[in-house]
Design a protein around this nucleic acid. Structure first.
Lengths: 310, 310
DNA sequence: ATTTTTGATTAACAATTATTTATAATTTAT
DNA sequence: ATAAATTATAAATAATTGTTAATCAAAAAT
């Protein structure tokens, strides 16, 4: 290896001698014997072809070359200390960045609360939330651009082997009605009742809509028999439409928590309807897991998986 | 020794891998085997308790911690390179400072020419000239505040053992006359002629004057018989007085070179007058000799000692 | 002035650490 | 699937570094 003309230990010794004014005291400070100090300085002087200290007098004094070297030495050692601190901060979660991926719905309604909790616990870790399609999110995790993600959809099969996919929570898609809808008075609805309703749905292009349709089909609902009153392009718009009495909708429970609590939207009981999908936590097992990512999985995810929503 | 969490070699390896994107290529670049690189990075990761590279993929990619560390790493290695360069410059006399001591006369008339020559040869070495009494100059050399000095006077005896004192040149104190003085026509003067002259001398307080008197006494001149016309406080003032025809004077030859050449001052031959003193080069043998100081002694002093003046 | 003490160097030895060689495990490319 | 390439691991060797002990030099104290 094309050798460097000095080592950090040598610089540390140099600094100690300069501060203490003596080889002996420097040795004591560094908990080594005094010959070790002498030897290292001799090596340093040999390697750099300079004299660093004028010894002999009662004090070890720096030569001009020594003074010049000391200045660099101090800068270098300071940088080293800073580097250590930065790494320690990273380890103790006093720094660093956590990048989380999510789908539209989780990203809008669930992740903000999780991230809020996380940042409350680790205020020095900055968090980025990237809301993308399941597909793109999956690739981002594979590439390491995202530390972890929660997805609902199906990943491309190539990714299924590459990624660690863990069931995380159950996403319930709830039928909701305007509060003053005639059926809101009923104690429980049956599947057949659905066909009497007018629906407000997501844009038929959207992937989420496709997932919703798929889930409904799997629950034994003939979607072509459902009457679509309106197609909108955001959950918020749909919520507003429902609240205005324009029709019924299937919405993730998390997205309407506030409205259910305040009674502006009604969620009737439907015993025989299990419109659910598994939400999965995906991570990349072949990649380094940051401390922040570990902390998120350990401290934040469990609290929300008990929700069993979205 | 309270250990540092990393070595410069480890940082160098880290940087090489980051640049090359591969452990293997980094190993080739550094002329070591690949396991050496692997092990060093493993040690580094262990010591800092972080993962630095995501390996396994086609490329060794930096983790977040790795990126942070790399930044410090680059700064540190840059400082190291700079330190090396600074030291090399010092060795090759492309930097550094030379501090020279001198007495009033040498400092005024001789050293400026020497220093001019030195700086012509080593333009990047800055030179300081400190003009002080012999006594103070001697102590400065002893302390290492001055690299070398040329003195004419006698050093305090305590210093004579401490310092290296080498005869350097002979200082001739010449009798000079106004060019149109009656005695300027004579081919050669005798001691007795001196008592017919009016002298312009240095202030009787000054140490230099005392040295001059001492030298004259040693040459067998009865100074109390010399007529003192005027006492001035600088050699330049005396020179001007002589040129103006106000009287004769004893002056160091170097201080009147220009005037002798242009004929505005006359220096008569005096066979039996040997008003000389040894100029000595003093250095501190127990102290480190800088490259600049070596170069000055080697390259500059010899040229001027042939002058046999001052 | 001589002794005592303190600090620095030198040399031999012990211990640690790094490097190499050889090999295995993975991964990418053909 | 096989070949080529990259990284990891293990054992042996080489190199470095620190320690102790002995020596030397200088300063302080008697």
């Amino acid at each position: 290896m094309p050798e460097l003309p000095f080592t950090l230990d040598q610089l540390r010794i140099l600094k100690a001698i300069a501060e203490q004014g003596s080889f002996k005291k420097a040795a004591d400070l560094l908990f080594v014997t005094q010959p070790a100090v002498s030897l290292q300085i001799q090596n340093l002087e040999k390697q750099l072809n300079i004299t660093i200290f004028d010894r002999g007098g009662r004090k070890a004094l720096l030569t001009e070359a020594g003074q010049i070297l000391l200045e660099y030495c101090q800068r270098i050692l300071n940088q080293c200390d800073e580097a250590c601190k930065a790494v320690e901060d990273l380890n103790s979660l006093k720094g660093g960045t956590l990048i989380i991926g999510a789908s539209q719905t989780t990203g809008t309604y669930l992740m903000p609360r999780m991230i809020g909790l996380f940042r409350q616990k680790y205020p020095d870790v900055s968090v980025q939330l990237q809301v993308h399609s399941t597909r793109r999110t999956g690739w981002s995790v594979a590439n390491g651009q995202i530390d972890l993600a929660i997805i609902g959809g199906q990943l491309p099969s190539e990714l299924e082997n590459l990624l660690q996919i863990a069931p995380y929570a159950t996403d319930e898609l709830a039928l909701v009605l305007p509060s003053k809808h005639r059926l809101s008075k009923e104690k429980e609805l049956a599947k057949e009742d659905l066909y009497t309703l007018n629906f407000v749905t997501l844009d038929s292009q959207s992937t989420t809509r496709k997932v919703v349709d798929e889930l409904l089909r799997n629950s034994g609902i003939e979607i072509q028999r459902l009457k679509i009153e309106m197609e909108l392009n955001s959950l918020e718009a749909i919520k507003n439409a429902v609240q205005s009495g324009l029709g019924a909708a299937f919405l993730p429970v998390v997205s309407i928590e506030r409205e259910l609590a305040s009674g502006t939207i009604h969620k009737p009981l439907m015993i025989d309807l299990g419109v659910k999908r598994e939400l999965k936590l995906i991570t990349n097992p072949s990649r380094y897991t940051s401390k922040a990512s570990e902390a998120f999985k350990r401290d934040i995810l469990p609290q929300f998986s008990s929700f069993k929503t979205i």
